[in-house]
Every structure is written in structure tokens, then in C-alpha cells.
Design a protein around this nucleic acid. Structure first.
Length: 142
RNA sequence: UCAGAUGGCCGGAUGGCCGCUGGCCCAGCCACCAAAUCGAGAAUGUCUAGGAGCGACUGACGUUUCCCUCUCAAUUUGGUGGCUGGGCUGGAGGAAAGUCCGGGCUCCACGGAAACACGGUGACGGAUAACCUCCGCCCAGGGCGACCUGAGGGACAGCGCCACAGAAAGCACACCGCCUACCCGCGCAAGCGGCGGCAAGGUUGAAAUGGUGCGGUAAGAGCGCACCGCGUCUCCGGCGACGGAGAUGGCAUGGCAAGCCCCACCGGGAGCAAGACCAAAUAGGGAUGGCAUGACGAUCCGUUUCCGGAUUGCCAUCCGGGUGGGUCGCACGAGGCGCGCGGCAAUGCGCGUCCCAGAGGAAUGGCCAUCCCUUCAGCGAUGAAGGACAGAACCCGGCUUACAGGCCAUCUGACGCU
């Protein structure tokens, strides 16, 4: 925890030169995020948790995508839902993502039907909301 | 023109902004390797590394140049790999689906053969790497027709079943019926009763022991005859399944094999998470229970031999820890397209040409605009909503299932015109 507190202030994340984004690939990471913070919108559900020390890289956030057969449908629908979420993440994470954290975007029924502009707005608002809560948690833990 | 049959094809189009991924090329940076050049150093020092040339010389010796060995550093060139940037180029399907068959490929098992078991296939001829596939043909059924449908071997090898209905459903049967010729009794007689004969007609059923007609008879019956069906034999056609003709029998073996079964043929098992390799990590942690608690060996302790003690074992379950990487397999194949030849066709042969997805929480896209199509509203201009089924995962040949809309060819029937 002491090592984490040496990071720059949360306000200065936006002008940080290049936030690299990696993809979550392993089931334990998804499970850990599911136990973390959760923010639900009509477009999707956003889950977030700090990246474990072991996989921590400077100035890097990790994102994963999930779409279940039960809520979304067949392979074609699930692929399309994940692609829309990926495109939205690519637009919004460099602006609002926090380095040193893992995020998971869970597709919901609205992921396919919601207009893309609103999907982007949902993601931006959710990321800001999660950013505040994570910031509070960090201050409390110090 | 309408209705229909069969086969084949397509499966929205164009542009803009922002992205993902494979291949090739270029540039920059980094790392490694090799070579060359230059420099420094080492050997190298009281005893002056070695060699060659040169000068000089009796000789000792002197001097200069060059080559060879090792180490370090720098520069240049080339190669390999990584990262970043740029350019060019490729990037889901007809079913990618279901995972139902058949193969290739991989690993495992296995001495050969046979038998048994299990599973599959089932007219005939061909195609194929192979098939439960495909083509042709035969038979049966359906349709005016083009054409369609068919698990299509065996029911005298055996067992079993045939519900309900019906008189009778496998040693067939006699309910309603038909007859009274022969024989017996009664009666003058008609007739009645008995002894009997029959299965034509009715009824049931998926199915009733050949059908129709004539003769025949007391009534009837393949009892006789003709035609049809069926069986057997002969001849002809066909590679064959089978078809045709003739003779003959006098009607026989009812159905179910998708109940068991019999016959013929085929079949090792598991699958790319197969499997191979590199790197990393672990190299045996703890608990509980069971077995052995011997022998051999090792280590330790008792000073040493003898002797004694301790540790070390195996199996199961649970808990904990580590492992999140990469390369190959893996994209040139029973490959696509075109032409020619053989074949009715499935398909085969030859020539030419092309390289055409390779991901790995899994790319092949996200958004916008215009056009196209469909539906709805509207007289209309137009507006609104929407875009079939569906996403490669080792590859190939099939089958099955899903599918908005559209195109082409051939053929059939009806109507109209010439």
C-alpha cells in the first residue's frame, strides 16, 4: 500500500501523457473485479478493482469485456456487444480511466440497442463516478 | 400470360472518420552475433616472445617496416530479434450451425488368423480416399404431367405379437343366413321336424384364405371354363436388379423383422485442450485416515565391532503453494477458377492460371451519410421503423437443420396468338 501512495494525484490523470490499456485475459481477474465496485447503467455494468501488485505496471489500466449467452443471445449478438463496448472503451478510457486498476464491462440487453452517443456518455459518467469512490477508499486506507 | 416441377447462383451497395489483425517493404531506437578498420594494452623483461625482409657486418650487433596470438574500447558494414512510426496488401459462411456419418493427421493399444459379443449397413450397376454420401437404373406408391416419395435382404431356421371390433385373427371360423337333393320320423299331400350340406350374401377390422363373369348345383364351392392376379418351368432381352412371351398348376406360404432374430458385408481406442519442443516454476509443504512398522540400504545417536534406538516408505482424502510465457502442429490443399477430352450422369484425365482468414477472454470491426429493399401512414410530395438465418478455431468430403429477399436456366400443364 505504501508503494501505491507514491502515485501522482488523481486530478492529474487526464493530462498524463499516455495511459496504456491492456486486456484482461484470465478468469481470476474477472472474479476479483466482480467482488469490487459495481456501477450499473442501461448500457452495461462496470466493475472495477485495483490491479494486484504482481501485475502492476506504471501508468497502465486493464480492461475486460463479458457478454453472457443468457442475457445477450447467440454468438453473433455477443460478439457485437463486445465490439461496441470495446469501441466505447477505446474512446473513453484515455480520458477517465485510472491507472493501476482493473475494469470489467459486462454487456446487458441494452448494449445492442442503446444509441452509441448515449453509450459513450454512460461510460464516461460511470468511470468518473468509480474514480471518485476509488479515490475516497484510497484516502481512507492511508 | 398464369399455375407448377427441377437444377444452379447471389445473400445489400458506395463513401467518410476512428480502430483490430496476418504478410511484405522502408525508417529510427535497443539488444545479440559475425567481419573489417583504427586505437590502447598483454605476452614484454636485469635475462629483450617468434618469424621474414632491409641495412650493415668477419662476427657480435644495430635499426626500420611488415605479418601472426590474446584482451578491451570505438567506428563502419552485414545478419537476427524486439519496440515505435510510415507505406502497400489480405481478412467469416452457404450454411462458418447441429456435431449426425466418412476420411486425412496425431497419440495410445495390439504376434497372426478365426470365433463370439457389440455397433453399423441392406434391391441392382457405377462414382469415390471413404461413406449411412452421390449418380444411373429397377421395383412399389402418388401426380393429368414435368416429377416426387420409399431403412427396398429373409416371415417354410426359430421364438413372439396381431389391441379394439368381429362369428372367426393361425391346429382359421359359422353369428345373422342359404338349402332340404340323399337318409329317418310324422302326414293322404303340401309340408314340418331330425340327421345333415354350404360359405354365395350381411356385419367387424389395417388385414378375413384369390378377383370378375358364365356354367354348374338342393344350395354352394377353382367343381369346370374365359380373362386378370399368383406360383412353377422353359425361351428371349439385359452386366445385373428385373422385364417380356409361352406352357403349366388349380390357389398354395395372412401381416409385423422399426419385437427378438437369421443371412451377407464393414468396423481397434481416443482426439489439435491430439501431439512435439523451448523457457519458467516445482523439485516434494502441512493435516487426517489406512497399510507396512519386516528385509536390504542410507543418515544420525549411544566412543568403536556386536547390539540397540531414531529418521527415511506406500496409498487415499483434504488444505496450502507454484505455474497467467513462447514456438511448431497451422494454412499448398482428395485446393479454387478456366479450357479441352471421355462418360446419360456422379465423376475421371490433361493443360493453363491463381495463392484466397489464421484469432487465442479469441481479430475479421465501431460510428455517420447516401442509395437499394421491406413494412406502416398518406391522394401525393414525403415521413417513420427495420435489414433473413447466423460468427471460422486442425483440415477435407457429405448429411441434417435455419433462412428476408432476389436472379438465371431447363421442363410440364392450361389459356391466347401466329
Amino acid at each position: 500500500m505504501a508503494g501505491k501512495s507514491s502515485r501522482p494525484e488523481p486530478e492529474s490523470t487526464a493530462p498524463t501523457p499516455a495511459l496504456t490499456i491492456e486486456r484482461l485475459k484470465h478468469r481470476p481477474d474477472f472474479l476479483r473485479c466482480a467482488r469490487g465496485l459495481r456501477k450499473v447503467t442501461p448500457s452495461f455494468a462496470l466493475e472495477a478493482a485495483p490491479t494486484p501488485e504482481k501485475f502492476l505496471k506504471p501508468n497502465c489500466a486493464r480492461v475486460g469485456f463479458t457478454a453472457t449467452r443468457k442475457t445477450i443471445g447467440g454468438a453473433v449478438q455477443r460478439n457485437r456487444a463486445k465490439r461496441r463496448l470495446r469501441a466505447a472503451a477505446q474512446a473513453q478510457f484515455p480520458l477517465y480511466g485510472m491507472p493501476g486498476h482493473d475494469y470489467v464491462l459486462v454487456a446487458r440487453a441494452g448494449t445492442l440497442t442503446r444509441p452509441f452517443v448515449e453509450l459513450l456518455a454512460d461510460l464516461g459518467a460511470s468511470l468518473k463516478d468509480v474514480q471518485e469512490k476509488l479515490g475516497q477508499m484510497r484516502i481512507l486506507s492511508i
